[in-house]
Computed example of a mutant assay.
Amino acid sequence: MKTYLPLLLLFTFSFIYSQNKSGIATYKLQIAFDKDALEVDKKYGYLQKAIDICNDLEYKLVFNKNEANFFQEENQKLDIVATNMANILSETPKISYQNIEQNILLSELKADGILIQQKEFLIKEDLKINWTITSESKLIDNYLCYKALTTKIVYKGDKGFNENVIAWFCPTIPFSFGPTKYSGLPGLILELQEKNIAFTLKSLTLNDNDIVKIIIATAKKTISQTEYNDIVKTRMETLQSMSKQK
Rank of each mutant, 00 (worst) to 15 (best):
K35F: 09
T151S: 12
T238L: 04
K2P: 02
Q117H: 10
F169Y: 11
N103I: 07
N130Y: 08
Q72C: 15
N84V: 00
Y27F: 15
F63H: 01
K220S: 12
S22L: 05
K195E: 14
P6Q: 03
N103K: 15
M1C: 04
T132Q: 09
Q30R: 13
D36Y: 12
E101M: 07
A25S: 09
S18H: 10
L89T: 05
A32S: 12
F71Y: 15
N207V: 03
I214E: 07
P174D: 04
L122R: 02
N162V: 04
A37K: 13
K246W: 10
L127F: 05
S107T: 08
K152P: 02
L144A: 08
E91F: 12
E74Y: 08
K221W: 08
N99G: 02
Q48F: 00
I129D: 01
L10Q: 14
L149S: 02
S241D: 04
E191R: 10
G187H: 06
D126V: 09
C170L: 03
Y4A: 09
E191K: 14
D158P: 06
S107V: 04
T12W: 07
G187R: 08
S137T: 12
I133P: 01
I197Y: 11
I153M: 14
I16V: 15
K220W: 05
N64P: 06
Q245N: 11
